[in-house]
Amino acid sequence: MNFQAIKAIYRYEINRTLRTWKQSIASPVISTSLYFIVFGSAIGSRMMDIDGVSYAAFIVPGLILLTILVESINNAAFGIYMPRFTGTIYEILAAPISAFEIVIAYVGAAATKSVVLGLIILLTARGFVDFSIVYPFWMLAFLVLISVTFCLFGFVLGVWADGFERLQIVPMMVVMPLTFLGGSFYSINMLPGIWQTVALFNPVVYLVNGFRWSFYGVSDVNAALSLSMIFLFMLICLSVIWWIFKTGYKIKV
């Protein structure tokens, strides 16, 4: 293993985040806080409890995930897309570093940022909403696993993208709607019959519910199933990345 190379890329990516902290950290924290204020404190106080949890507290895990999913994808996608865009990918390809190490470094840095961001949003939420965490270990485990998985997905996106528009399309036009419709603001049990079944085809439902279970011990789907779905998606992303490096798709001819 070329640990020095992993460390170099990791440090470089973290520095990039710190250099752009207003955009990378402050902006998502502020926008998520607005959700807490509007949907949690203002509107939430007039909503009824769901599964014994106040509405303001109920939406906390979903809102954290909403930011984590989008930021994980954006971070990892930009991490690998920018060297492709600027041409500096040459020094990664010419270095004595394996595909596995490249992925560890880029995805590791992006996931670190996502987890830290998630924890900052969690602490911020405490300022607006009263909630507790029943299973802190599992909360952290879900946070890390979901961050890593979506960073892997972002890495794939960053390799696939041929322009900045493509980078934005997936998080904004696919992931965000799926998250909104994935039970971030409601329990899928509140949906009419057929729509409950349709909702189960939305993968984000499993992420939101697994994460919410770690907070309150309540979930629309089994937590083990949620965990399995995360691992399944992670496996799919890893397979695609393996194929990318095996074929050199959009990286090497």
Binding site: P83, T86, G87, A95
Partner: peptide
Amino acid sequence: IGLVPQEISISMFETVWATVNLTRGLYGK
């Protein structure tokens, strides 16, 4: 091996010191 490419491909927002250190690290040094 060291390579000086034909195109000027560098991360414009990085400092000279950071970019040179990055490359050294990539080569396991």
